[in-house]
Design a protein around this nucleic acid. Structure first.
Lengths: 212, 212
DNA sequence: CCATGCAGTTAACAACTGTTCTCTGTAATT
DNA sequence: AATTACAGAGAACAGTTGTTAACTGCATGG
């Protein structure tokens, strides 16, 4: 069912993506609410008016960026949480996967962390919705685990939210470590991983004794 | 040692505070990186150039706002964490205190949540430093608790950070509940409190079984 | 009581912003 | 082959921005 786009539509998507990429770059040093439409088009090398062919406003572009940054992440979440092995192994693998993701898409991570509580309402809402979806997916995976026997849906969901928030905080800390001076980078990254691992371990302990 | 300010200095501090208040108000609907100096002075009813008598830039004003929003919070933290009673009582009281604080200073809470990962580096750093101080204070209080016997300093600190982050997330959720439509407000607030309580309880459980 | 310091004002600057309208070239459709 | 649709260019708009300079009035310290 994948219809090959005509030259026309292909070129359009290309500039659209260029706008998204340029915006993401500019957002390393500012927030979305101060991102100007002209600023973005200038970075791409296109006329300011061309912007309107793709987005109604920078807020609209922000929502598209949320889609790009989080939309493609769902399969990864599912496979990560449902990975086999004892809980210690699972924690190590999860932390490692977060670190790898931050390494691969630092601008995406920064954008989500920055705009989650940022000044643009539609973007905040889009992020909140995506994270709620993540929490639901994590909940479903948690439910499959024998440890979750006897848990109510509500309790599973509150634990899922705890995990999701914790993963976001960890990702943001990894990012800060990356932004620091090169020589401290490795040590800071290791430190973040070590702390995050123990926090996850502690939460896991609480999980095991929840029904006592 | 409190020297009564002259008429001159008193008036200066008055306008300075007016600038801070106006900025905090304007920041409800945008981020600091898009806050204009003229915008602030206009809201106060003062000439744009007067701004420079108090702050070098809006980033500088942001740092001052961090001080105002978090600086006065330290005594509260100490007394809260060190409050007596069993852990269930302590959790209830902590959540209630957070809710009360968000109710009393919503703009401050919003500002911290928004700019913690925001686009202005000096402000991010100021918030990070203050939160690190909080974590240290929480650590000190945790250390006094008999439950912490045998814990390493590192483990106490990682738990303290977990608590601080959790408190911030909870505060932000309370704020979102406040911002919603009036009729849902009470129920949403109750729901946030309920989830946060159980998350704290689960972390507390993990804490008790940490040395197993 | 007079001289100084300084919070706040006024005016002007070049540079920037979002948005509208009109136009052009060319891929897509008929 | 002729027509249409539409991504992008270009120019112009009124309004905004941060920053500088020179000023005014008044509380303060000698």
């Amino acid at each position: 069912m994948s219809h090959t786009l005509g030259i026309r539509q292909a070129q359009k998507q290309k500039t659209r993506q260029a706008l998204l990429d340029a915006a993401l770059g500019l957002l390393e040093e500012q927030s979305l609410s101060s991102l100007g439409l002209r600023e973005v088009t200038r970075a791409v090398g296109v006329a300011p008016t061309a912007f309107y062919r793709h987005f109604r406003s920078t807020a609209d572009l922000g929502v598209a960026l949320v889609e790009e940054a989080l939309g493609s992440l769902h399969p990864m979440i599912r496979t990560t949480v449902s990975t086999t092995g004892d809980s210690e192994e699972r924690i190590t693998r999860t932390i490692e996967l977060i670190a790898r993701h931050v390494d691969g898409y630092p601008a995406h991570v920064r954008f989500i962390a920055r705009e989650r509580h940022g000044g643009v309402q539609p973007v905040r809402e889009a992020i909140r919705d995506q994270l709620a979806r993540f929490a639901l997916e994590v909940k479903d995976e948690l439910a499959k685990d024998p440890v979750s026997a006897g848990w109510t849906e509500d309790d599973l969901l509150m634990l899922a939210h705890l995990y999701v928030d914790q993963m976001l905080i960890t990702a943001s800390l990894f990012l800060e470590a990356l932004e620091g001076p090169e020589q401290e980078r490795e040590e800071r990254t290791r430190h973040v991983a070590q702390v995050a691992t123990r926090q996850m371990r502690l939460i896991g302990l609480g999980r095991h004794h929840w029904l006592d």
